[in-house]
């Protein structure tokens, strides 16, 4: 077959697949979001944005992302650096650290619920230590901080490994000679991390952060398990519009708003972590 045509033929199946199962539904959602009885309108967007829970769920989602992602980034960097320095047992540790990735987000939420609920492990432990004399229900509206903390912890536990895996691969791509040069020219281990590893890791940091930030805006099941209605987030509201209020126009509008926020943050991350022309490895 013609060598110029072949690549296009080879990507045809996946293009068709994405067109059928991604692009087409996306167009339908967009039509729904912008549609109303009188044709095109922003009515659905106005409705969801004006709703009293919208600012709260937007703020909660952003707050959660702002609390979780930096911690995950720092942890993932630390863990990736540790794994990369290991001589033996490196794969084993990596597998163990990535176990939470294999658990669904709802299951992860339920695991942490088992820790924080009234009859949960945390209560048993505090009771056993004599810190409290009767079980406390932490996950209520009286303890918004604890609810937030529980959700954040569950998210950190569940989804740090996805960044870890990307960063470990990225660190592995940095040639050893750069560190030797840095050693000879007087860079301390910390300086080597900040002046060599971090800048040379930019492409991997981009990927890891984009992926993680997008997932952070889509947070749903962990919140549903731990916070229920106490802690409204954007994706939870979208679910409520679609299945509780049976307002698919509003749900579609919410979905597009979340998409817009994700695209916005992706562009910001790509911009901040861009590699200047000619400066890649």
């Amino acid at each position: 077959m013609n060598a110029r045509v072949l690549p296009y033929v080879l990507i045809l199946p996946v293009t068709l697949f994405l067109g059928l199962f991604f692009l087409y539904p996306f167009v339908l959602v967009a039509k729904q979001a912008f549609g109303s009885q009188e044709g095109w309108s922003l009515e659905n967007f106005r409705e969801v944005v004006d709703y009293w829970k919208f600012p709260i769920s937007l703020r909660n989602t952003l707050l959660l992302a702002a609390a979780v992602v930096p911690v995950q980034l720092a942890l993932a960097l630390l863990m990736a650096t540790m794994v990369s320095k290991m001589q033996k047992g490196r794969d084993l540790i990596l597998y163990i650290w990535t176990i939470p990735l294999g658990i669904s987000d709802l299951a992860a939420g339920i695991i942490w619920l088992a820790i924080f609920e009234q009859s949960g492990f945390l209560n048993s432990m505090l009771n056993g230590l004599g810190v409290i004399d009767k079980p406390v229900n932490f996950l209520t509206y009286q303890h918004p901080g604890v609810v937030f903390l529980a959700i954040a912890l569950a998210e950190i536990w569940r989804a740090t490994a996805i960044m870890l895996v990307i960063l470990v691969a990225g660190i592995g791509l940095i040639p050893k000679e750069y560190y030797e040069a840095a050693d000879v020219f007087g860079a301390s281990k910390w300086k080597q991390f900040t002046r060599i590893t971090l800048p040379m890791l930019r492409p991997s940091l981009q990927t890891a952060l984009v992926l993680r930030v997008i997932l952070a805006f889509e947070i749903f099941a962990v919140v549903a398990a731990l916070g229920g209605t106490l802690f409204p987030v954007l994706m939870g509201e979208t679910y409520a519009y679609q299945f509780d209020l049976l307002n698919s126009g509003a749900a579609a509008a919410m979905a597009l708003i979340i998409l817009g926020i994700s695209i916005g943050f992706t562009l910001i991350i790509l911009r901040i972590l861009r590699v200047p022309k000619g400066a890649s490895i």
């Binding site: 050693d183 000879v184 007087g186």
Partner: peptide, 21 residues
Amino acid sequence: LSPKDRGIAMVFQNYAVFPHL
């Protein structure tokens, strides 16, 4: 001593010129 305290400088085979600088 660590390399930086030896009063040496080195030229590497693959240059090791930092690409991000």
